[in-house]
């Protein structure tokens, strides 16, 4: 057990690490490896599985039907992330530069919807958008529409539900990075003749980049794996990868294809995040 080179595993260390090794090894890593194995397997009857080296499950994603779902998933996830960033940044910025008392209360107000249930947050939009509900009443009252129009079960409804659900995930890390921000840097920039616009883009924004990156990842990943929002607010035209995976596991009982889809989703997300962090992360940080 003990390793040499002065980085040995003392009994104390082994004691501290054995519970986590057991739990995450058995209930996180082993299941993932099982899915990897299944993704190369062949589906039998009723969820049965024949292992092997069958790459057909991966080849199936090339079907235009599935490619379209993958593409749609990424578009919705990217749009959700962008909208959360565009809306969340001014909010986090505003809160971060208030007095201490106001800051605490305002950020708590952002957190309360987050601490209530995710399902409830999505359900609220079902109530608003459904049938001749509040949203349709408002549209007619404002004279934008003459009668009730179909709002729910559309891609826009899904996007709305996603932005609403994930906005707090964006605001919190942004707030954390802006709150620790040294205001004197802003003042120095303005003393040196930069206007507020310049100061923001050249000083404040680059320094808040860690928050932007953290927030984007915190929104993008669950958004790309989402299946509740499209289930409740979307229709057949808004099926996302999450729905497809769920169908393969629970309805179609094709665990091999479902596993391959999960692997594809995980790998695509991993690549997207690495690309994003390299690209956005280093560029902007060096400028700052």
């Amino acid at each position: 057990m003990a390793k040499d080179k002065g980085k040995g595993w003392s009994p104390g260390l082994a004691g501290l690490l054995s519970p986590v090794t057991f739990w995450l090894g058995l209930f996180f890593l082993a299941p993932l490896l099982l899915i990897v194995a299944y993704s190369f397997g062949t589906a039998g009857v009723y969820g049965g599985m024949k292992l092997g080296f069958n790459t057909n499950n991966y080849a199936q994603i090339a079907d235009p039907l599935y490619l379209k779902i993958l593409f749609r998933t990424l578009v919705i996830a990217v749009l959700t992330t962008l909208l959360c960033l565009v809306l969340g940044y001014p909010l986090a910025y505003f809160i971060a530069f208030r007095s201490r008392k106001w800051r605490n209360n305002l950020i708590l107000l952002v957190m309360i919807p987050f601490w209530s249930s995710l399902i409830i947050r999505v359900y609220a939009w079902v109530v608003i958008l459904s049938g001749n509900g509040i949203a349709n009443h408002a549209l007619q009252f404002l004279g934008i529409t003459n009668g009730p129009v179909n709002l729910i079960f559309t891609p826009k409804a899904v996007l709305m539900g996603m932005v609403y659900s994930y906005l707090p995930f964006m605001v919190l890390p942004l707030y954390a990075s802006l709150e620790s921000f040294d205001v004197s840097l802003k003042e120095a920039s303005q003393d040196l003749g930069a206007n507020r616009w310049h100061t923001f883009w050249r000083v404040t924004f680059p320094l808040s980049m860690p928050g932007v990156i953290a927030g984007s990842i915190l929104v993008f990943i669950p958004a790309a794996g989402e299946f509740v929002v499209p289930q409740l607010l979307g229709g057949a035209k808004t099926t996302m990868m999450g729905n497809l995976i769920q169908q393969q596991f629970l309805d179609a009982r094709n665990w091999a294809f479902g596993s391959a889809l999960s692997m594809i989703l995980a790998v695509v997300l991993l690549v997207a995040i690495i690309f994003y962090v390299r690209r956005v992360g280093t560029d902007k940080l060096e400028v700052g």
Partner: peptide
């Protein structure tokens, strides 16, 4: 210790893995 980066990345991976992937892998397991 040796293998520390493996623990670090496992813990990090657990937080960023899409929930649906974690869910179906546990179901299969």
């Amino acid at each position: 210790f040796r293998g520390k980066s493996f623990y670090d990345s496992t813990i990090y991976a657990d937080t960023v893995m899409p929930e649906i992937v974690v869910g179906i892998s546990l179901l299969a397991f």
